[in-house]
Design a protein around this nucleic acid. Structure first.
Lengths: 356, 356
DNA sequence: TTGTACGCGTTATCAA
DNA sequence: TTGATAACGCGTACAA
């Protein structure tokens, strides 16, 4: 077992100085062709590779991006990661992942852990608990320490940073309009409680679409699901709640659900109540997931282009990181103008809505 | 914007030496209570945290685990990551993720990138292309450099390292036995080409189950799907291939599919051919995915306990890392006995098989 | 053409 | 009780 070789070992072996080896390997023409070749041959033989950690310490940058997401077993988030990783790798960065598991504490701890030199910047989506508590000090502290953050999807206005969001409002608006133009008269929405920003926006889109079509929204047609019901353990409860909702609203002929799980469950319940989809009830979800594609009937959805979001977020972050380098000395940092990139949604029509 | 403070800055500020600060912060009783408190107060005020990179360089370990997987947008792999992250975090480690995207080159590049000091060890699952080419030099090199590897799921005998695998053979065997005891007479298998180790093993389980029931296996009932058909872009081709398979085998009354996608697609095709599930054809898949749970009918599957695999893999790796420390000096490394942990599968009965 | 010295941030050892 | 020094591995400005 030969451990990793270092410059020092090569230097000792070849009886030259460390800096000579360093220069020779970096093809500096300060060094004679003779020694250069000798050193390079030796380095190749022993598979010399510079130690990343030492480079990070020296350069004061790690070429690593920290990702903090609430959950990884989730099509949307894993697609975002894929997008981030793609761009990051292409631009010479690695990706380190921390999971908040939707909990405030784990989010804070994870961020502190990574912020102490392990990474150059964050890409993150806020946990539900954090959104609920509205405690964002850890984000601000991180930014104040000069570590850039890019938020995606679950963002918050209070924080000054680059953001990548889905056009939730217009996405849902168009979905609801689709239902309307497909002839639905009683469109229900199954959404989250309002503190989840994306849920709130999607609800708003729903309301605006109705309003613009001069339809009065009825609060009875709006079901706001509580967070806990999302977890695997509470699938049954979710189903029951939606069942109750159906019982209270016998005349529903269209459903807009703000995520895949709600949509699928709604379809299931609708069928249980003897409805045909899309003949009796048409359903549209909001997501990128696999479920939608393979459900029966396959689900018409508002696609979020998750991978695009990841790619965009990575580009934003790396751009800022490399920009910071150039103006390193500028000290008084000319007022930094943060961007909010909006990723357009796309309505993917499948079999849960009528083909006109 | 106050940048991260370092020992040096605190020392200068308080007009003491760096080492005094360091000791004071580590509660060394070498230091007078006076200065100790002074330093600690100052450090707290400025949120001093030791720089991870510097610590890594000094301690020659990063407390970071590198994960290399073929694909992240995949229920199985993301669940494994969740398991790894859970244990890693609990034991004070971070997790850095590299995606091979099923390609040999990316696997190699990613590993080289991380092996140069960024991590203490790998947890990985081999890419399809690597399995196909059977070129494993990068694994051996990594291990020879003293960096431990734990492989999971897609492993290979040639490599000497800890492994965590699913009991593929017995899992499929029991699945097929279930179909048999449920009355199926013509059980087909939809599997992968043999170089995918898990596919091969699951096929073997299928064959053994038949054999033990004195049933001759028919090659016409074995469909081995080519890799490329797995990708999103080739879903249609996959469906067509399975359709053709059905046309050639009109008498199928049971299907065992080695993954979720194959199973779902098979159900779809079966229905298209006018079959009722589970009345005419019973189907069992091999997976942990969401599709199975939410499909119509919901799919009976062999669960792999992906999260357990991740947890076990992380424990194996960290155990070895911390063991290495203790016997650091031992040099002649008493022969290392690597383990292969087998995670038992579990048959989860849902609605694609008959309830007897 | 080659080597020395320094610094990145930290800790451990030894000297004062 | 405190401080100076070395070391982790690297790159580079400067000296030889």
């Amino acid at each position: 077992m030969r451990r990793k070789v270092t410059l020092k070992q090569i230097a000792r072996e070849l009886d030259v100085s460390i800096s000579t080896v360093s220069k020779a390997l970096r093809h500096s023409k300060e060094i004679s062709e003779d020694t250069r070749e000798k050193v390079q041959a030796f380095a190749k033989l022993y598979h010399y590779r510079p130690n990343n950690i030492a480079l990070s310490l020296k350069n004061r940058k790690t070429k690593t991006i920290g990702i903090i997401i609430p959950e990884i077993v989730h099509h949307f988030f894993s697609k975002v990661i894929r997008g981030i990783e793609l761009v990051a790798n292409k631009r010479g960065y690695n990706v380190i992942v921390g999971l908040s598991n939707e909990a405030f504490d784990k989010e804070v701890i994870n961020m502190e852990m990574l912020a102490n030199g392990s990474i150059d910047g964050f890409i993150l989506s806020i946990s539900k608990q954090t959104l609920l508590q509205q405690d964002y000090h850890h984000f601000n502290e991180t930014i104040n320490q000069g570590m850039p953050i890019v938020m995606f999807d679950r963002v918050v206005n209070e924080i000054n940073c680059d953001k990548v969001i889905v056009d939730d409002l217009n996405g849902s608006k168009r979905a609801v309009e689709k239902l309307l133009s497909n002839g639905c008269k009683n469109i229900a929405i199954i959404t989250t409680k309002d503190y989840v920003s994306v849920g709130r926006l999607r609800t708003q889109g729903y309301l605006e679409a109705l309003e613009e079509h001069k339809i009065y929204s009825k609060s009875s047609l709006i079901l706001k699901i509580d967070v806990e019901l999302d977890s695997e353990d509470h699938l049954d409860d979710l189903e029951k709640e939606i069942e109750q909702f159906f019982k209270n609203n016998r005349n529903i002929d269209g459903i807009f659900a703000v995520n895949e799980l709600y949509a699928i469950t709604a379809m299931k319940v609708a069928r249980k109540f003897g409805n045909q989809i899309p003949d009796d009830i048409q359903v549209i979800g909001f997501t990128d997931g696999v479920l939608s594609k393979h459900a029966t009937p396959s689900l018409t959805t508002v696609s979020q282009h998750a991978q695009d979001m990841g790619e965009k977020a990575a580009d934003l972050l790396i751009n800022r990181l490399e920009l910071d380098i150039d103006q390193e000395e500028g000290e008084e940092e000319e007022e930094e103008h943060y961007q909010t990139v909006i990723i357009e949604t796309e309505l993917i029509e499948r079999d849960s809505t009528k083909a006109l």
